[in-house]
Simulated assay, not measured.
Amino acid sequence: MVRKTAVRKFFLSALVPVVLMLAWIAASAWGLVNPLLLPSPADVLRAACRMLKDGSLFVHVSVSFARVIVGYTISATLALFMSWMCARHALLEEVVHYPMEFIRIVPPLSLVPLLILWLGIGEAPKLAIVMLASFFSVYLTSFSAFRHVDPKYLELARILKLTPQETFRHVIVPQTLPSVITCMRLGFGFAWRALIGAELIAAASGLGWLIQDAAELGRTDEMLVGIFSIALLGILADTVFVALASKISPWGGELQAKAMTWLK
């Protein structure tokens, strides 16, 4: 039964991509689209093989991934720390609420010119964009999770005379971990998209720059290679988060659903 369900899920998930791919192949073969606007899948595949062979695709992928890993690690660490402190100390949350709301409302990409002016044209502006784009999705969801720990379990911890460290380990972590993993998953998606946008505007390497450079030279096939690379890497990263969630907190399906509700 489980195997049948898995096979059915796979076929349903693959249905739309397969139909779109077949339509793309047919449109290219019958000359329904201009090859300059939409190259055939074979042309895109040849461009990908060429870029893999000369190493350029690997360079751009590694640069973008290094940027997003560094920026997101810093952002998620700060967000989790701030959410925990604000959940524990209401006064701190009141003090930082409006300044953080001001920063949250401003689109990160609108700050690119200012960040370049302040931080130069190196890696710092792009890392700052990643941090700004991903910070609040992690902060808001984890803050809600820390605030919504079941008071019955906290009361039980007090009755059992658990230390703060034991309460954190045995009560708070199991309650909040599924939501934290969910917000980490969402935050990484925001960070990845914002980084590509920043590379489109101000970069000399990376997948965003690859797409922009190919567009200026009219190489639509290489543009599509960059776009597919972004999508595949994002899906791969999301799959890793899902696998980690099932391994680390297999009990967290219901709480993850609550986290998605809080985010909305």
Rank of each mutant, 00 (worst) to 15 (best):
S179M: 13
W84H: 11
K126T: 09
I235L: 10
E199C: 08
L57G: 05
N34T: 00
M100W: 15
E166S: 14
P99L: 10
F65S: 03
L127K: 06
V242M: 03
F241K: 00
P41W: 12
I69A: 14
Q165I: 11
V95E: 09
A133R: 10
R46C: 11
I159K: 05
I211K: 01
Y98E: 04
P151T: 04
L127F: 09
S83C: 07
G122A: 12
P250G: 07
M85I: 12
G197N: 04
W251S: 08
A203W: 02
A6Q: 13
A257M: 09
A145I: 05
L115W: 14
D221Q: 02
A29S: 13
L22P: 03
I235R: 00
I121L: 15
R147G: 04
S229Q: 00
L255W: 07
A14V: 06
A243I: 08
R193N: 09
G226L: 01
A90P: 02
L80G: 10
E123K: 15
V242E: 06
V44R: 05
G187K: 06
H148G: 13
L111C: 07
E222T: 02
T73D: 02
R219N: 10
C49F: 14
S137P: 12
W118D: 03
K9G: 07
G55M: 05
S249R: 00
R88Q: 10
A14S: 13
V149A: 12
N34P: 05
D150Y: 13
A133C: 04
A128W: 02
K126S: 10
S28P: 04
I74F: 15
P113K: 11
G31Y: 01
G197P: 07
M184Q: 10
K126A: 05
F228W: 08
V171F: 13
A6G: 00
A243G: 04
C86T: 12
L195G: 07
R50W: 05
